[in-house]
Design a protein around this nucleic acid. Structure first.
Lengths: 134, 134
DNA sequence: AAACATTATGTTATAGTATTACAAATCAAA
DNA sequence: TTTGATTTGTAATACTATAACATAATGTTT
């Protein structure tokens, strides 16, 4: 039993395979990269990956990175807040953060312009800690 | 002479056509939608559009909306700040904003995690003012 | 257990988005 | 006006995502 199974015991086989593949990768993977990883487990078509990803997103276990066309495991349970992703241009590692100032900023900007936010995307590209040291 | 020509007189024919098409659309357009719009002006291949878009982004005259696979004209000259896009789920209109709290939030989160930001993406999906009134 | 609805899966085909590669034309200096 | 750099044209291809339809598994009610 893995750490996900305890939180959401209802995962199907394909969902589990995709989630574990993402968790094992250590960085975001595209749908076709996932497909390649999972061919050994019987995956044969992109739709198997896309469907599992849709369901995992619905369950808040996975995020899509819009600027990468890739997906990554959700780091924890801040399911109400807007996640912020820092994406390293050099090593490709992505870290997930939650930030009150940014969440408040989204809300107050929205209020000021009469906008009702539904889904917010914050992705920062740049150079990470480790790659900056070199 | 249009408002863009005075700011950046060096636009080529294709760049001007793409920029004007985007400005005239009133909302973001995808690359193939732009191609269709511009077939009457001699465009025949997607690459003509993609190349012009790349250059217009370089010139800071156009933004790419990562979550829509679409492009929109840059509203003004805040070229140093992170633009924030509010994208209406109902009518498709996108408004561009600049927000100190959000810009500061990006910077301070980055500093705290030793990240050097390079390009930031903030896109808010939801319901706009007008569509909320209905 | 049988019947039914619901959800998940398999598979093929196709749609939508973006880039590679190479040739030709244009433009801007020296 | 030759050179070199940039822009453009064109075809082919790669990458990303969904539609449509068939089948199987699961859950629920009787």
């Amino acid at each position: 039993m893995n750490r996900h199974a305890s939180a959401k015991p209802k995962l199907t086989r394909n969902q589990t395979l995709v989630l574990d593949a993402l968790a094992g990768a250590g960085q975001p993977l595209g749908a076709y990269a996932l497909l390649d990883v999972l061919r050994g487990h019987g995956f044969k078509a992109p739709l198997q990956v896309y469907r599992a990803l849709d369901q995992l997103i619905e369950l808040k276990l996975v995020h899509r990175l819009e600027s990468l066309n890739a997906w990554t495991v959700c780091c924890d349970n801040h399911h109400k807040d807007t996640p912020v992703f820092a994406i390293c241009n050099d090593c490709g590692v992505v870290t997930e953060h939650f930030d009150t100032q940014l969440s408040n900023g989204i809300n107050s900007l929205s209020e000021r312009s009469g906008f009702v936010p539904d889904r917010s995307i914050i992705e920062i590209h740049g150079q990470c800690d480790k790659c900056g040291d070199a």
